[in-house]
Simulated scan of single mutants.
Amino acid sequence: MRTLIIDNYDSYTNNLVTLWCEAMKAMFLDLRKVFERDEKIATDSVPLSEILNIDFILENLILIRNDQYSWEFVEQNILPFVDNVIISPGPGHPENEKDFGICSKTILLTKKPILGICLGHQGIASCFGTKIVKAEVPVHGQKSALRILEEAKFPLVSTNCKFKTSLFESIPQGISVVRYHSLVVDEKG
């Protein structure tokens, strides 16, 4: 699964890269268990140590800044070769092209699955017509209980695949998360 991470000039992007690497390792460990149980798959499959080396990770993760390349370059030379996109947090407002770069066009013009975090999430909402407004009170370092809606528990891979997972599968309902934002998606639309 090749992933494009678009960095909106936020230090949290480093955490996203680390989390992505850990998720890939965990996914391959789980896949290996599935494959080892499947009688149809040969036991001489590629050793896990070869799959999880840094070259493999680097070949499957593309990290770019939101203004590093033109939209045309990304559309022609990067998006056709990835399976999904993660849009990072960042300062600014998603409706300001200087703050959000190629992210709006990525959201509107690609058919790849997109995960938006903070500014990325706000950008997805904004691109589809929802207003982004200032929060009543800026939230910086506040802990909140995470509520995962049932609709969010969709499979990440094809139903034809033996290995299925949900984006939030291993995250417990109500887990404490830390929030950092001064803008919010307007619930009124």
Rank of each mutant, 00 (worst) to 15 (best):
H140W: 03
F35K: 01
T43F: 00
D186S: 13
I5Q: 03
T165E: 12
S11E: 07
D55V: 09
I107R: 02
P138K: 02
G141T: 05
G189T: 01
I51L: 05
D44H: 03
H121R: 03
S126W: 00
G129N: 11
I54F: 08
L156S: 07
M1C: 09
P80M: 05
K40G: 00
G123M: 01
F100D: 00
F154M: 14
M24Q: 08
I78A: 07
S166K: 12
V157L: 14
E151K: 04
G174S: 02
K153G: 10
L183P: 11
L48G: 09
D99F: 03
L16Q: 02
C118Q: 01
E151S: 03
K131Y: 01
L58N: 04
S104N: 08
V85K: 04
N77I: 02
L19C: 14
E59T: 14
G120T: 11
N96G: 01
G101D: 13
K112F: 00
P94T: 00
I86C: 10
G90C: 01
K111S: 15
I6W: 02
T159P: 10
P155N: 04
K134S: 10
P94R: 06
A42I: 06
L183N: 08
A125W: 14
A135F: 06
D186I: 09
V185Q: 00
I171G: 03
E97A: 08
S158W: 01
I171N: 05
V46W: 11
K153I: 04
K134P: 11
D67E: 02
I87L: 15
C118Y: 06
Q68D: 10
I171H: 11
I5M: 08
L146Y: 03
D99N: 15
I54R: 15
I107W: 04
Q142M: 01
K164E: 13
F35V: 06
L19I: 14
C118W: 08
P47V: 03
C21Y: 05
H140Y: 08
G90N: 01
G90W: 02
N66Q: 05
A42F: 07
L109R: 13
F35L: 10
N66P: 10
G129Y: 08
F56H: 09
K131W: 03
A135Y: 12
K162Q: 09
E72F: 02
Y69S: 04
K131H: 03
S170M: 13
T165P: 06
P138D: 14
S144I: 06
